[in-house]
Amino acid sequence: MSELRWNPLLGEWVATATHRQQRTFLPPADFCPLCPTKPGGFPTEVPESSYDIVVFENRFPSLRPNPEPPAIEGTELYPVRPSAGVCEVVLYSPNHTSTLATEPVEQIHKLVQVWTDRFRELSELEFVDYVFIFENKGEAIGVTLHHPHGQIYAYPFTPPRVARQVEQSRAHYEKTNRYLLSDIINEERRDGRRIIAENSSFVTYIPFFARWPYELHIAPLRHVQALTDLTDAERKDMASILKVVLVAFDGLFNISLPYMMVLYQRPSDGKDYDYYGFHIEFFPPLRAANRLKYLAGSETGAGMFINDTLAEEKAAELRALVKPVAWNTERAGR
């Protein structure tokens, strides 16, 4: 049973997806449904093993291309609509025990290209207004399958947090004739204390306004709206800086750091969003080793985050963990 229900208090949609209660929950490694099917073994989601990256439609989707009508009748106050959209799973590797951080930069580069392809294709669907690429990593985030993977949700509307960013960017542009994300990047680079690393095309930093202790942003130096706007060289630089960030994260507490990673791109509803800037945000839930930052009363109830740390200090911690990225030139050049 799946439908979209309108929340008139907040002016936003909520998806019900009761069938997701049945999804596989933390199976043993020998029974991972995301590993390639082994000969004679139990059937998994992936019938072949010869691939670099695999994308498939989620077996337990919140949104479907051809959704059933809502199971409940809406009212004027409580409109409902079908859960139209697409939910995809992106497998980063056939290797069950790897993570994006441990994959070579060449593999991350391939992932960037796959993300670009998925954004391009899903954006063209008539019922899709926003393509949201993300990864939930680690049990601390609620991950139910450990095999390295991310997800893509193609929504039939622009989700509220994105819409707020878009509106802030539009208002800033109207007021200053400048791009908001470019101004943020310039401010961070001018100050310098919160910068983690930079290459020819991208910069990464803990923003001045970080809500999480290790909230980290990656932004292109050139103002673009989506992955499809990047040049070939910029996509390689994006892979490089992702590798830098992921390795630094894992070095923080010498664990495979849990995080949420989200890619913010322009909406795909056909309108003009020149003022909006593509970027990536990471939200690791840890505030120290084995200590979670909980979204409690203020964060959940009021939407007001309280960060117990200083972005400048946390950025220095991560900056000390930056290591150079080595490309295998033979593989990279193929």
Binding site: P43, E45, V46, P47, S50, F56, K110, V114, R334
Partner: peptide, 27 residues
């Protein structure tokens, strides 16, 4: 449902090299 296999320049690293074809859950 659809599944898309991405490979790059035909270079992949099969996990089950030399073994018979698997029986997928959804053919």
């Amino acid at each position: 449902r659809y599944i898309i296999f991405y490979t790059f320049d035909g270079a992949t690293a099969p996990l089950n090299t030399g073994e018979s074809a698997p029986q997928p859950e959804a053919k």
